[in-house]
């Protein structure tokens, strides 16, 4: 799975511009799905299985977009001003490298400002090596993602955009490993999550599921002087979400997920995320409402170019997802 994750994180796809990453996902799924379609907002939806008497229509949502930048202005000297796509902290920008959708590369520089002042994104620019506006290869509206090589540290891996490509890999792998299922499972590889769960909103309406699960990363509280404190840790197993700031997971599903994990001997941890949202909200609030939950993977340094997850957590997230989808879903 590491090679798939590497391929996914190395393919640019900021929110709204997920066409290249969508093609990679499509290829990775190959013949394992019964049906594949792309909806109006560009989400890829792969169906597997048909609904039996004990089964439900289940939506699994892992978002394939990533945070990125969009060009707002090219000045007369060829320096490129930008705005953020999704939540980007200026802390993680200066000196960073970016790659545009056409392969153009650049580095992020900073206006001369006071040393101990936190800069804002408007104090920064991308330098693509141009000498003037005329020879600058990028123009207003062009998008880029961060560039940082994938790093395999053995038990841990580091990359940009593990949020949420690691979950996309988990969903692809679960789709492949899923043998018999009583359910009609729609694996949604959703777009525009980072700008407001937009792809999952329309995909959920289109799929009209009976039950849904998001798969996403969550904060990990196991770094020095973590504040606010959070009880999640790398390597403690996939996290079963109770709530985040966007939605409250269906408590019936939470209990059932816990019992399923225990029954299968899969390590798990409970998650209460105080800042951050997931596609689970979009699923829960579509149409007349849908019971929704979320399987999370603890991740350090989220939205920096060097996000870190634990390999065992990733593997166990796949196992948990396959386990959940292989049996009838209890909603009592």
């Amino acid at each position: 799975m590491k090679s798939l994750i590497q391929k996914l994180v190395e393919t640019p796809g900021p929110s709204g511009f997920e066409y290249a990453i969508r093609d990679v996902i499509h290829e990775a799924i190959g013949e394992h799905a019964d049906e594949i379609r792309v909806d109006a907002l560009g989400s890829l939806i792969a169906r597997k299985g048909t609904k039996t008497e004990q089964g439900l229509r289940v939506m699994i949502s892992a978002h394939i977009d990533e945070i990125g930048l969009m060009v707002t202005h090219v000045d007369e000297h060829g320096f490129v001003r930008f705005t953020n796509i999704g939540g980007i902290s200026p802390l993680t920008c200066y000196g960073g490298r970016v790659v545009f959708m056409d392969g153009t590369r650049g580095v992020i520089g900073l206006d001369g400002i006071e040393r101990d002042k936190m800069p804002s994104l408007t104090d920064m620019f991308i330098d693509v090596g141009a000498t003037s506006k005329a020879d600058c290869p990028v123009k207003v509206g062009d998008v880029c993602g961060f560039e940082r090589p994938f790093l395999d540290l053995g038990k841990r891996m580091v990359a940009k955009s593990l949020d949420d490509r690691v979950a996309a890999a988990v969903a692809v792998e679960a789709l492949k490993r899923l043998g018999s299922t009583p359910h009609e499972v729609h694996f949604v590889f959703s777009t525009q999550e980072e700008v407001g769960l937009r792809g999952a909103t329309t995909a959920a309406y289109g799929v009209d599921p009976d039950v849904g699960f998001a798969v996403d990363v969550t904060r990990s509280g196991d770094t020095p002087r973590s504040n606010p404190k959070m009880a999640t840790a790398l390597g403690a197993g996939p996290a079963i979400k109770v709530r985040d700031s966007s939605f409250i997971a269906d408590p019936r599903l939470v209990d059932w997920m816990v019992q399923s994990a225990q029954a299968a001997g899969i390590p798990y941890q409970m998650e209460v995320l105080e800042a951050g949202g997931t596609d689970g909200r979009a699923i829960q609030l579509t149409r007349g409402g849908v019971p929704a939950g979320c399987v999370s993977i603890a991740c350090r340094y989220i939205h920096s170019p060097s996000e870190m997850v634990d390999s065992d957590d990733v593997e166990n997230a796949v196992r948990l997802l396959v386990k959940l989808l292989s049996e009838p879903i209890r909603l009592t």
Partner: peptide
């Protein structure tokens, strides 16, 4: 349900 967090009940029940 859920008025204090998501307005979830009010978004969904009228739909049905």
């Amino acid at each position: 349900a859920q008025e204090e967090e998501t307005l979830g009940g009010a978004l969904t029940s009228p739909f049905d």
